[in-house]
Design a protein around this nucleic acid. Sequence first.
DNA 1: CCCTGATTCGC
DNA 2: GCGAATCAGG
Length: 192
Amino acid sequence: MSWTDERVETLKKMWNEGQSASQIAKELGGVTRNAVIGKVHRLGLSNRVGGASGAATEEAAPAAAAAAPAAAAAEAPAEPAAPAEPEPEEEPAPPPSAARRAIIPAGQPLPPQPSQNEISPEALAKVSEVEKSAKKLSLMELTERTCKWPVGDPATSNFWFCGLPVQQGKPYCEAHVGVAFQPMSSRRDRKR
DNA sequence: CCCTGATTCGC
DNA sequence: GCGAATCAGG
């Protein structure tokens, strides 16, 4: 495989979108993430962050000015609609990343949690989909990086743990992270 | 161990 | 120019 104009274009686009080198490599096919990174450098569009490394992990929400009153806590009601993103891809939405947390000033009583419940149907669908291919691990088979999402009734023999590869830093796989933690603001956006 | 990007250097 | 190997870090 060579770096055709098209491929370079895709590379640029995805890199600017904040996609990881491995994701880009996967998308392009026929190249490794090293190749992608190498190309990125040669193209001179390397910078994206001040420091190196560790881009995968979520960024802790920067303690910004978001300390608005209760209203801020309401935030957006888990909006599934991605305004404009003509993605011909399979994946309707990239994994929700930044878990933004409204920072409540100390002393302020926590406002009653709004009805921000309702897990996005999207996430639920993903879960039921995933549970089919779950590894169905027993309690003792769980490791640091197996999804610990329980399935079934612990009182019966029909009980197991998901066991799929976990999302880094979290106890669950991507799908289960999706239902365990509310995305709140769906779209990816890195703050650095 | 999983992952990330950065750099080096033989090709 | 290319990218595997290596490095450095989360």
